[in-house]
């Protein structure tokens, strides 16, 4: 976004710098008092999240910043979205659809949630189907959602077998070549990728975003 006025640049900067105390009152004022187009405010948020994502990628930001950025975005989004009227502007076209869930037997979700958030702010449409997801549920959700990428998450070592089973079931259902599969979680490495038959694994949310960009042909 190159056409920002001073106040808009200020909001982007405060959001990107984790200055919640100044950013939130300014966003609220823009939306509730100044009558600013809510789509414009959400665009500013997106510009700020681009900076957050880059800083994460460059090793300046870590998980606390992603979590706080997500929280700020939620707060502003919850005020902006009810104010959107027809004709305010169009939703940005999404880069691709990603379905993500934690495999059966595993209840962990912190990593999965952060990956979902990073994919979302990087322009992907994400459907998160939760934790301890049975194979049948994955298949039903995939058939309904038609994703470009499926992300399987798992923290425990038992997830190795759950992932292998889930991917084998995609194969049996004739779905395996309809999307790419990425896996991730505390213990996941190349050995596990090979064992489960996934297309790729990632050790953090940036790697997940880069995998999805590569597969959907989206420019970084």
């Amino acid at each position: 976004m190159n056409d920002m006025n001073e106040e808009e640049s200020q909001l982007v900067e405060w959001l990107a710098d984790m200055n919640e105390d100044d950013a939130l009152p300014l966003a609220k004022r823009m939306l509730l008092e100044d009558g600013k187009n809510p789509m414009r405010v959400l665009d500013l948020c997106r510009a700020a999240m681009d900076i957050v994502g880059k800083r994460f990628e460059e090793g300046e930001y870590f998980l606390p910043e992603l979590v706080l950025a997500g929280e700020m975005l939620d707060i502003i989004g919850s005020i902006a979205k009810p104010l959107i009227k027809q004709g305010d502007g169009e939703e940005v076209k999404k880069l691709g659809k990603v379905l993500i869930g934690t495999v059966h037997g595993d209840l962990h979700d912190i990593g999965k949630n952060i990956v979902s958030f990073m994919l979302d702010i990087n322009g992907f449409e994400v459907k998160d189907i939760g934790i301890d997801v049975p194979v049948k549920t994955f298949i039903a959700e995939i058939e309904a959602y038609q994703p470009d990428v499926v992300g399987l998450s798992g923290f425990l070592t038992l997830a190795f077998d759950s992932m292998k089973e889930t991917i084998a079931a995609f194969d049996q259902a004739g779905l395996r070549d309809k999307f790419k599969i990425m896996i991730g979680g505390g213990q996941i490495d190349e050995t596990v990728r090979n064992y489960t038959g996934a297309d790729a694994f990632g050790v953090n949310a940036v790697e997940a975003v880069n995998l999805c960009r590569g597969w959907t042909g989206a420019a970084a």
Partner: peptide, 10 residues
């Protein structure tokens, strides 16, 4: 986990 990460700022 997420509460603590926010606390580092808040």
């Amino acid at each position: 986990a997420t509460g603590m990460m926010k606390d580092l700022y808040r």
